[in-house]
């Protein structure tokens, strides 16, 4: 049975992980590659790196990070932030990323989705959607890191990006993001039920119970978290064990590279 994935997300600024990190085992708590290796060992299923500076001056730093990650970590990882052309995508994929994610660029020029899917395959193209549920119940899509409202409805937009070739949707609720009070279940479920491709729930993870709800009630195919792992308040293995105890299929094995090889 296909397992539900637990994904850790790193916000990276000029090659350094931002947001306070208090993970004791790290020699360099701001080094994304070092963190990726530790999370891999802890049993994370997948990683996402979001380059929040996303400026061209820093592109080389990001490429270096992607290459170093691919050298040390043998699980899938996604890179996003400021990718605007298929050549931008190609650079990341060639450097070792398995998927790329686009958000604002996809809203501004939806053809970018199909161009990427055609050139690299749908499986590489993750469209990130930031959505906010308004007072009237409307689920509105925002761009520019949640700063700019659009006229798009989240469910309609999700259907469109899949039509255009997105292989996966990373769905962040601006209502729940940062509160650690649980994922946005109605939004997640509405989008997940509307599309054939996997949906990653994001925004609001505070504990394993939230992840269980996102999968059960929200019908998410994967759950993404940042702070609860980075601050060390929740260990990946514990979260996954609790999900398993709740009857959710998760990958429990944590085979060590040196032991197996």
């Amino acid at each position: 049975m296909l397992t539900k994935r637990v994904i850790a997300c790193f916000d990276v600024d000029a090659g350094r992980v931002v947001k306070g990190i208090s993970f004791v085992e790290l020699r360099d708590a701001g080094d994304p590659v070092e963190m990726a290796a530790v999370y891999d060992r802890e049993g994370i299923d997948e990683l996402v790196f979001l380059d929040i500076t996303a400026s061209h001056e820093h592109r080389n730093t990001v490429v270096e990070m992607v290459r170093s990650t691919a050298d040390r970590v043998f699980i899938p990882f996604t890179v996003g932030g400021g990718l605007r052309t298929t050549d931008d995508m190609r650079l990341m994929l060639e450097s070792g990323a398995d998927k790329i994610t686009i958000n604002t660029a996809a809203v501004q020029r939806p053809a970018l989705i199909s161009e990427g899917a055609q050139r690299f395959g749908s499986q590489c193209i993750v469209v990130a959607i930031d959505a906010h549920t308004e007072a009237d119940g409307r689920m509105r899509v925002y761009t520019h890191g949640g700063r700019r409202p659009t006229e798009l409805d989240a469910v309609d937009w999700a259907r469109e990006v899949v039509e255009r070739g997105a292989g996966e949707i990373m769905l962040t609720s601006m209502n729940t993001d940062g509160h650690q009070d649980g994922y946005d279940i109605p939004l997640t479920r509405a989008v997940s039920d509307a599309v054939e491709v996997p949906v990653i729930a994001s925004g609001g993870a505070g504990d394993s119970q939230h992840m269980i709800e996102a999968v059960r009630e929200g019908r998410a195919d994967a759950v993404l978290a940042a702070s609860i792992f980075h601050f060390g308040t929740h260990r990946i293995a514990d979260v996954k064990r609790q999900m398993q105890q709740a009857g959710i299929p998760v990958r429990m094995e944590r085979a060590d590279y040196d032991d197996v090889l």
Binding site: T3, D193, E196, R219, D221, R251
Partner: peptide, 19 residues
Amino acid sequence: GSQHDGQHDSRKVPHMGWN
């Protein structure tokens, strides 16, 4: 592929993840 029917989990396509 198949969607969630209220009882059975969906089977999304692509088949993506650890199995």
